[in-house]
Design a protein around this nucleic acid. Sequence first.
RNA 1: GCCCGGAUGGCGAAACUGGCAGACGCACGGGACUUAAAAUCCCGGGUCCCUAACAGGACGUGACGGUUCGAUUCCGUCUCCGGGCACCA
Length: 842
Amino acid sequence: MPATREERYDAQRIEQKWAERWLSDPSLYAAEANSTKPKYYVLEMLPYPSGALHMGHVRNYAIGDALARYMWMNGYNVLHPMGWDSFGLPAENAAIKNNTPPREWTLSNIAAMKVQMKRLGFAYDWSREVTTCLPEYYRWNQWFFLKLFESGLAYRKKSKVNWCPQCATVLANEQVVGGNCWRHEDTPVEQRELEQWFLRITKYADELLRDLEKLTGWPDKVRIMQQNWIGRSEGAQVDFDLGGTVGPAGSTITVFTTRVDTIYGATSVQLAPQHPIVEDMIARDAELRAKVEQLIAEQRKAREVGDIGNIEKHGVFTGRFAKNPYNGEAVPVWVANYILMDYGTGAIMSVPAHDERDFEFAKKYNLEIRLVILPQSSDPEETMAEPALPFTTMNGILVNSGEFSGLECEEAIQTMSSHAAEKGFGKATVTFRLKDWGISRQRYWGTPIPMVYCEKDGVVPVAEKDLPVILPDKVSVTLAGGSPLANVPEFLNTTCPKCGGPARRETDTMDTFVDSSWYFYRYADAQNSKAPFDTNTIAYWFPIDQYIGGVEHAILHLIYSRFWTKFMRDMGLVKHDEPVKRLFTQGMVIKDGAKMSKNLGNVVSPDEMVARYGADAARLYSLFAAPPDRDLDWQDTGIEGIHRFLGRVYRFYVRNPVDTAVERAETGQTPSLQAEARTIQRKLHQTIKRVSDDFQGRWHFNTCIAALMELLNEVSGAEEAIAAGRVPGSLILDVQRKIALLLAPMAPYVAHELWEMTGETGNLLKAAWPKYDPALAAEDEIEIPVQVNGKLRGRVVVPADATNDQVEQAALADEKVKAAIAGKQIVKKVVVPKKLVNIVVR
RNA sequence: GCCCGGAUGGCGAAACUGGCAGACGCACGGGACUUAAAAUCCCGGGUCCCUAACAGGACGUGACGGUUCGAUUCCGUCUCCGGGCACCA
């Protein structure tokens, strides 16, 4: 049947109409205060306001919005907010390029993106909008900083830090990816010695690791990544005595090892080139200094290439010996380029027989290789064979190890650590890979760190009552290096909060990950001017029931946020240990097999998609094209298909208008439906079940949209029966209303239009999610495949409640099955209820 | 090197607990409607063999092997792709 003009699905007209209605009612998506409903907090990661949404955002928010709307329809008090991660370097780059002040640039980007979000129909409670670059927000960053400082969790330290020459600022360890800057993938990070502010995240290292077990609603992948990042390692520290002081660093080398059981096999001590004792040694040995500097250079180079793992091992003997406290043996002390100063103690004992790296090094420099562990045989009587070296597993017995010989590795580690502690030359200890979080940035567009430097009183915190320390507007931004704020006298010069004398302000600003570490708390109490938020309000909304975002924040943002929550708990501000109950990481949106990028010219613009196919189609397609946790390969023809589907849905309503009077007329009757009508009714209830199950469980929106397509195919295939009056109007109306309801979370605009076409009014958020009737969803008859020797040979149709015997009889009676088993002996008959029959013959 | 994930038609994918592989959609081919086009509607389809056609048969979920009446699904070995960590002592 050809489509008429009135039947045309005009997405623009429909979406304009509903957008006007929705936008005129700001309370529509507002979370309720003092609600008796159960609460549900659904959160999507807030965007950086770059100026335009990309398809990745659309996908992220389409998932979150579908969930939020579904929960609303299921009677929850939903909190669904949005905000802007709006500090950061791009605003400064834009300022330099276009001569626009960062503030202006950022705020106009926010305005533009908000228009896009509203056009896409996302149901956000804008009264709770958080914009991190505004003083109303960042004053609380400063307030938290003061609290951290009071608690000793914020401290200042001079150290080697990661420096990105492109950003002209320092980076945290988490922001260095493979030796390069996380924002500039081709820019190697340099090491600079700077005085910096750090947050003591390591205080919570153990808890951050332990509580990962509680996060059962998080993807394993993310938990494992965090576990690796924290890098807890149990071992022992042991002191090796140099037999005399070299310099200020003393005469003891403390090594860290996870295999103290192998210490009788230690044949040298290896120091990191930057080790303080090495510095003492080279202070009066020019020759050694040259060699050590060479090792440092090699290390730096390898690090810059991101290849520290494959560095060619080099070392130099220092000419000195250190005493192994277990056996009193003096072993040579070396400096080696594969020893890292920033892990453990920067010194190791080298046991070539039982460590790959030590083995390789010993071979190269002809150091002694001494076997002290023999593999443990499963048969104790069996003589133990000499293993291939290096033998690194823990499945062994100690030999040549004095009083500890004969112990198994595991128990030897315990015994020998205790022994060291008793004798006072060592102890069992735990080392973490996680380092404290360096938050100073030598940039302008960030939260000013609220500290003051006074000649007399030193480092003094700004008084709480003087917050916020306002970021000045008139700043000339350059990437010359050094904080731009240092060139603003009005900002720089201040008075000491303690003595009132002249002082200067800290000119570094905070890492923007501080902003995102707690923004989701502010949503719950966004207008609070007395505190970052009210503790009781938080207790109601937290933890976040569902957080949705990209996996790229698995370590950075998500570990900082967990740390922030634990700190706030310890200061009594929140009552829970973890901020996020369930985490979902959606896949990337790619095109032609590659990440969308301007360079490749494969960027799909959401605006263009909305203009051409409508917001509903753009949203629905991003849910349909792939399960949400997988990457989505964008295909322009795919969204066309979805647009076509919405058109077919729309036409079904236009072509089959049901007078609502019909409903009333038919109520009270129990119509015995004819076969065609019954098929439609069954499909309807099956579809409600499938869509509901997908929302509850796996979030495979692609399959629930497929289910809706199947339902539509069913009813539009029955147009003849409908026209002939063989399908009751009440059933058609039921189908039409339920399709509108099922579509509402994913394609809200057209869902509302369809809802209205069935004579309903009111927002679908307030309509109840449909329920299915299992009896109506059930099949009367089912088709059972019949296999012979595991191969499909026939199909039989039996009543759904047929017994196994009946099914078996039907199967054996089937002509094709008969032919397949003719002349053969039946060995076994397998009948799986409602599934299949398999007849095994010989 | 270690740890996670993935591999199914021309393409995106489905098969949720071991039970008909390929739902749904895209692209494609054929047809209807139309003066024509667009839009819309209907039909077809994994590969190969056989057949005039109907029908029939064999093979098929990255590879090889195993368990099972039966394997995309479980086990073992391997290949390729993506991600994380990496002389972390």
